[in-house]
Structures are given as C-alpha cells and as structure tokens.
Write a protein that binds this DNA or RNA. Structure first.
Lengths: 213, 213
DNA sequence: TGCTAGAATGACTGTTCGGTCAGTGGAGTG
DNA sequence: CACTCCACTGACCGAACAGTCATTCTAGCA
C-alpha cells in the first residue's frame, strides 16, 4: 500500500539478493542442503560469509528463498504453456515440454527439486506442507485439461489427478536421466514418446480389457 | 571355496549384523544419510556406538550394507513376479504390484531408495555407478517382457527401456504418495490404473495419431 | 572358583560448520 | 578535507558428530 519509490540502496540490495540466490542455487544444486556450506555459497557469490546473514537470517531461509524462486517460475511457465494448448493432447505435450526445457536450463534447480521431493517422503521437508502444495500446483493445470477432456469424452473417465501425476512422474524421471547421461540431444523424441504413451493410454475405447488367462 | 563350518561365534556375529542393519534402516530411513547419527543407530540397536565399529568400519559402509540388502531383496522379488507372469500385461501389473507391496512393507527402505535416487541425480551418490546399475537391474525383467511383447506384435514397437522406465517412475510416485497420505487402503485400484494406462498406451493400433488442429 | 581372551563400552578427540560481532573501509556530506 | 555512517568482513565461538581406544565386562574353560 505505502508506495515508496525504490531507492538506490533498495536496488543494490535487490541485486545483491539476486546474486546470492544464484550462488546458492549452484551450491545447493551441486551438494544438497546438508552438504552445502555457507562458506561455499559466500565464496561462489564473492562475498564474506557474514554478508549473507545481512540478507538472509539462516541457511534454511536462503535455501527456501532459492527454491521458492525457481518453483514460482516453473509453475508460471508450465501453466502458461498448458493453458495455451489448443487441445488435451497438446496440453500433455506442453506440460512435458515446458518442464523438460526449464529443468534443462536450470539443472541446479532441478537437483534441488528432486531432493526436495525426496525430503517430503521422509517427512522432514522444510515445512512439510510447503512443497506438497508445489506438486499440486504444478499438476493442477494439466489435471484440469485432462478433466475437461474426460468431460467431453475425448479421453476415458480416469481419475484426472492420477493421470496428471503419472505424467508428472514420468517427466521427472526423463529429466533425471537426461541430466545424468548428459544428453545434449533434442528432447523432442522423448517428449513425443511420453505424450504418445499417455495419450494412447487415455483413449476411450481400446485396450483396457486385455486380462487373459 | 574354503568351506569352514560356521561356528557359534559366526552365527552370533551374523545375528548382530542383522540387528544392526535393521536399526540402521530405521534411522537412515527416518533421517537420511547426513542427518542420521551413529549414536542414534546404536541406541536403536541397543548397543554402544563403539560396537557398531566392530562390525562396520564406517558410517558409509553400514549405510551401503543396509541399502544393498534391501535392494537385493527387492530385485529378487520383482524379477520373480515379473518372470512368473503369464503374459505381458500381467508382467506390468506384477512389476507394479511387487514393488508397491515391498515398499509398503519396508517404508524405511523406500525412503532410503528415494533419497539414493536423488543423490544419483546430484552426482554424489555412493559410488556413482552402484545405484545406476540398480535401476537398470530393477527394470530389466520388465523391459524384457515388453521387448518380447513387441516382437510378437502384442504391443507397439516402442523403446522397451523407455516404456519400462515409465512404469518404474509412475510406480515410485505412487508409492511415495501412498506413504505420504498414510494410505492403508488396498492398493489394487492404483495398481490397476497404472497397468491399464500403460497397457492401453502400448497398444499397437489406436490412439497415437490424434494431433488435431 | 579363578583365569583369560576378546567382545562391548562410552568418554574423549579432532574437525566441521552454522551463526556472531567487533572492527574496517569507503561512500556520502558539509 | 574531516567526519560519520553503515555495509561488509572474517576471525571466532559453541554445538554436533564420526571415529578411537583404554577400560570393563563376561562367556567359556580348567
């Protein structure tokens, strides 16, 4: 509400915060939360350790800020692409495409993301709720697309959440494998494979009844 | 080669090792490698910390032993179920079923497993190769089943490895979600959903050409 | 029962790392 | 130029923890 004009100091502070976040993403991505040290982040950012504490009160807080920044951007991009898709099949493709390319652009964020997902499973995530919501957020647009398609009879009457999560899981696995093998190749083939597999899997009629002997 | 009869001491030692492994699984599963402490494992096992070092030379080594034990068992069970399946569709169902039930029985192992997979992505896994192989091992039987089905024309000519990994990924996600929500309900519905989705997705004819407008 | 080997113990050590704060230097001001 | 202010620094502190080892306990034997 109070519309203060950003002073020079504010701008400098914002810049510093951004630089710290980028450094933190590199260090956290390369080492995970526990193995990452504040000294390493400081060195990466080219400042003294104490300086970080002028901008973030704790290791956890800079971690959270780093993760949240990436998550917000990823969600924004994914949703935009999915919602711009002209039809359900394209929506699936768009979902996979958006995430693969974002993760490929920021592999350090992807590493943080993967670790965070596994921390949730353990139950010691940073505020257990925080990231659960993120997964649901990331999945929501796709889920809605599938829901609508089901309503229009373009796909089987499946649980849209389960189907969306399946795409989510496969995509995550794909990105992980591409990152590991250092795949620089175009991801189009992989994305098409996933899209085909799921789209075919969701078709109304065929296949589902093949439970012989 | 040297067939020594197991002495009483050997038996006691084996028992002790087993107890330590079970305690370690609980602690590592609940905390992850870094957060887990040798003191906690010792307490869980009801021995003094020094005792652990009589059986395992380091924290890393007891971790590795714990993880390897679970992995070997999981692989054995999965392969057995998949190979016993009478047809490809059942093979997929068997794969998912075997893993869901094993993970459900040993949630602590599942937590270690998930963390280990994410460590690989970071690149600082325990012997980077160690677990890569595990994923391939776990996937191999299913992959072969899909391969054969493709050869017989029962499914589309897909990349069997990619298809198997897709099932792998979805299954992992399913287990994670069930663990999180504390789902005690029968997993049959979920397993059927995955099986239907993938089996339909692999069908020879239909679906794949739905790229309108 | 007394003796002994070696299993088990847990206090201790060295190190690592998150977080602190007294001190410094340089930009802004009059 | 002198003075002030504060962003920045990095040596330091205390806690946590892997791993050690001198000591204690105990099972098995004579």
């Amino acid at each position: 509400m109070t519309a203060v004009k950003p002073s020079k100091d504010d701008v400098v502070a914002a810049y510093r915060r951004g630089a710290l976040l980028a450094a933190a993403r590199g260090v956290f991505g390369a080492n995970g939360f526990e193995q990452a040290t504040m000294d390493a982040i400081a060195e990466e950012a080219g400042v003294a350790k104490g300086t970080i504490y002028l901008y973030y009160p704790s290791k956890q807080s800079i971690y959270d800020a780093t993760f949240a920044a990436g998550t917000a951007e990823l969600t924004r991009l994914t949703d935009a692409q999915v919602e711009a898709a002209p039809n359900p099949r394209s929506a699936i493709a768009a979902f996979v495409q958006a995430r693969v390319s974002y993760f490929q652009e920021f592999p350090d964020y992807f590493r943080m993301y993967v670790i965070e997902l596994s921390r949730i499973v353990i139950g010691l995530g940073p505020r257990q709720g925080g990231c659960r919501v993120a997964v649901e957020d990331h999945t929501r647009a796709l889920q809605r697309a599938i829901e609508q398609a089901a309503a229009r009879g373009e796909v089987r009457a499946v649980d849209p959440a389960a189907a969306a999560l399946a795409v989510f899981d496969i995509t995550r696995g794909l990105v992980a494998r591409r990152l590991l093998t250092g795949a620089k190749s175009d991801a189009t083939r992989d994305i098409d494979f996933i899209t085909d597999l799921i789209w075919a899997g969701l078709q109304p009629v065929s296949g589902a009844q093949g439970h012989p002997a």
